[in-house]
Design a binder for these strands. Structure first.
Lengths: 175, 175
DNA sequence: AGCCTAATAGTCATGGTTGACTATTCACTG
DNA sequence: CAGTGAATAGTCAACCATGACTATTAGGCT
């Protein structure tokens, strides 16, 4: 849950922004790397602001309704540094929703299990394509690194799934 | 969020159980595959029960406080079948908290970034060892499959991290 | 008999996340 | 210049997950 804070602080560190800008940037450019939704961003910014890590300024532009522009404070910079270091030093737990299905694979006739996992493989290929299409070299080395990281896992998943399918096929010669 | 339902239904399908049994089994044997905590299991069972997918029976044994024994209903079996198929057919999104740090890697001096990622690697090695130690062949083919799946990802992460470290080292010859 | 630890069986306040909704303004088209 | 779709800027009720807490009973040791 700390990574939401880290992400917003990191973006605000580059430049002060209003919420629409932040959400828009995340949705457009980081959709493969985070799932943070709009209302969540509002809530996190509210939290950060209450705790003094960011400052809000109302800003009027033309006749538009005034919007809240957030800037990072010195305390926020310090928090950012701490969270960044923590985040980099720790590895992620690999817990996948898809594992629960695997646990009960034996409950299904082998042929159906194979069919379903083949669907999963297709779904995965689609995901891989989407990620491969994502543009690079637009937001710094780090973002590209993170994207490659995701792709590594997607490809590892594909390789595993393919070899698992083969293994299952051998075990139960379908027909 | 569906996988919590699937997991509990799957366990109840094998045999009716009371909550302590369920939680204990999950904690002892599936801790590498799910994060579901005790109060969550209580809540999910409550939900499932309210919706008619499981039945509760009070059971007295000796002088112990009566405990709730849950059994899966026919409607629950049907739900289980549906959730299992859905789960098997879909691939997981690969979203890692650790990616957020990577995005901002450029904010740190190269030497510190390297040091932190080395720590991450160590953390990862530890995790891999823990998972390799986990016993196999105790709870059916599916559980072993899921465990191998996790290990595949952990190892892929290690390989990626190692090569990334090398690449970063080359880019900034530390001293 | 008394005491301690582990097993058993929960509850609850709190905090995080988000789908769905509301409203205003801008830019363009016919 | 009325109408429309996209951009802008949020809010809110509802749901989920869980750390921390409470209690009782069983079994063993002294």
């Amino acid at each position: 849950m700390d990574e939401q804070e880290l992400l917003l602080l990191g973006l605000l560190k580059v430049q002060s922004q209003h919420t629409y800008q932040l959400n828009d940037f995340i949705e457009r450019n980081l959709s493969h790397l985070t799932e943070m939704k709009k209302p969540t961003a509002y809530a996190v910014l509210e939290r950060l602001s209450k705790a003094g890590y960011v400052e809000v300024r109302g800003e009027q532009e033309g006749k538009r309704p005034p919007r809240k522009v957030y800037s990072i404070t010195p305390a926020g910079e310090a928090l950012y540094q701490r969270l960044l270091r923590e985040n980099l030093a720790q590895s992620d737990h690999m817990r996948f929703a898809g594992n629960v299905g695997l646990m009960f694979l034996d409950d299904l006739p082998a042929s159906e299990a194979l069919a379903l996992l083949s669907q999963r493989l297709q779904d995965l290929e689609r995901l891989i394509t989407v990620h491969e299409q994502a543009p690079r070299h637009e937001h710094g080395l780090g973002v590209d690194l993170a994207l490659e990281h995701v792709l590594v896992h997607l490809r590892a998943d594909r390789a595993w799934l393919q070899s698992t399918l083969e293994r299952l096929e051998k075990m139960s010669p379908t027909r």
